[in-house]
Design a protein around this nucleic acid. Sequence first.
DNA 1: CCTCCTTGCGCAACCGGTTGCTCACATTAT
DNA 2: ATAATGTGAGCAACCGGTTGCGCAAGGAGG
Lengths: 332, 332
Amino acid sequence: MRVTIHDIAKLVGVSPSTVSRALSGKGRISPAMRERIRKVAEELGYQPNMLARGLATRSTCAVGVVIHERHLPLDERSFYGVILEAIEAEVSKHGYHVVFSTLRNHALPRCVRERRVDGLIFLGTDIKEELVRPISTELPVVLVDHCIPGLTSVVGDNVGGGRLATEHLLSHGHRNIAFVAETLEDPSFRARFDGYRQALEEHGLRVRKELIVEGGRRSDSDRIAMEKLLRKKKLPTAIFAANDFMAVGAIRALTKAGLRVPDDVAVVGFDDGALATLVHPPLTSVHVPRVEMGKSAAFCLLELLSSPKKVSQVIVLPTPLTIRESCGCRGV
Amino acid sequence: MRVTIHDIAKLVGVSPSTVSRALSGKGRISPAMRERIRKVAEELGYQPNMLARGLATRSTCAVGVVIHERHLPLDERSFYGVILEAIEAEVSKHGYHVVFSTLRNHALPRCVRERRVDGLIFLGTDIKEELVRPISTELPVVLVDHCIPGLTSVVGDNVGGGRLATEHLLSHGHRNIAFVAETLEDPSFRARFDGYRQALEEHGLRVRKELIVEGGRRSDSDRIAMEKLLRKKKLPTAIFAANDFMAVGAIRALTKAGLRVPDDVAVVGFDDGALATLVHPPLTSVHVPRVEMGKSAAFCLLELLSSPKKVSQVIVLPTPLTIRESCGCRGV
DNA sequence: CCTCCTTGCGCAACCGGTTGCTCACATTAT
DNA sequence: ATAATGTGAGCAACCGGTTGCGCAAGGAGG
């Protein structure tokens, strides 16, 4: 059987409570005794049982990370693996563990009700308020990629990024800029679209409906969208895609159609993930700082856990433009 | 405060132990009493505290999933996000949770020693035996993508897949087939190479050293490898890449060099993930059944958890070839 | 020298469940 | 009618920690 504080207590000849105090550093205890107990604990290879501690202290030293099922599968197109990893990296530094869950199978409600975690981080662009609100009354909650009033959230500057990308294309003389997305119903994509619109309007241009295409929420959304776009009588000279996946699909479709990127059509994506450098030509893309988002979310949650003052905040991280070749800026 | 079995006991007028037995279904109890207690528990919205239960039963209803740091970041190039998700989907059906961890920060040893999980699944092609062996004496362990004697593991048929890919290219008349990998030190890539060699030898061909290129363990490994390959005086007519990432890099490099895929050089990848359909031309690739691997690993672990008979097994999943356009089989 | 305060530690309750054992009572066999 | 058997439920210990409270010893101050 593994060693417990009772074993240590017996060996040292003190009570378990003294051992507990010696190891936790709380409560009054003589330095000499503290050292003696620490040494024995060390020798015996004592490791506290977190279940017991959690039961006594009503805390678990674990945080839940929940990914919305809409953002699954967690495959090569997924945005959230990196964030999950960044969260794990950050919280593990502080002795916390990560319980990973999706929104399927009702694993989440169980996870919360069973008091398995001290707090939760939700990943997704469209977390339902009616799901999160009741949970947030029991547990600290941080949202990534979505905002709900009164809750702490960490988001990228989607509107700003949309403007940046569009302005970049405008500054190169493009006037027919298509906007390609899976769907405008998604708040993130909608925000990127808003940025696109703002940039156009500031240049005295209007959003032209025929240049907005949606591929729908499906795995071949990129193909569908580009087919729609390529069927138009007049092609745009540039495409701003709401994410890298659609941008890559655009490049593929254009290449397949015998068009050259960026010479015939310039393409700018959004996310700036690993995909951006996997395609030819390398993709110019609005950078979403995923690692920072994860770190930041973890940091916020740990802060909420340590201090009960519930000041919710919205952290907006900047989204600069990473310029590569697909926009026609740099020579190939 | 949340409702406990003591609350229920008081309300019904029985002892807590009776409530426990009524809800767990274990032990002798009259059907009438069982129903009464169940109803009250239902009405009160009772949810068991897993910490307390875990403490008493010495189980946690949680499994750990550990990803080797070599396979990080968990970005668009990562193979393991899908497997993680598949594991979660499977174990959550059986009431288990997933504690996610990497091999950094020593979160894993803590996770084990603190008795946070009932079992572990390791994800990675090169998990060190000296790390896993001691853990496996305390906890059931399942390996994915790697084998260690005496331990249960789930792997894809890398050798078979390597043969399949190579034979496919051979059957189309290719005789100069390059093998491109990040490194041959990785057991998985080595196995795929072995399949490649076997296929060549069965056709009376020998492995030619100048056709084997490694890009190293780095994020631009694909670029490095292809630069090496393209510097050769004589180019191969086909490339078998040890994974999709390298295959996509090969297509990119070839396209950039003005060569056409598959007309000038055919390319076959390995993994058959989402990347395969994101590039142009769509990639012919050996399919690695990641979802099945995850499900299978989860199943094995749950089995080990339920029955203490420690029969370790190695499950090898078939890796069929998914034919698309990059190998020149199908017209574009 | 006595009082008061501080210090160091143990006692025991508690967190919320599980489970072996005991015992009263009902049922059936002898 | 009595003994053997079975049934339903409670008691109390236990899992492995934490923590409020009390008490004894020692030092400081009057």
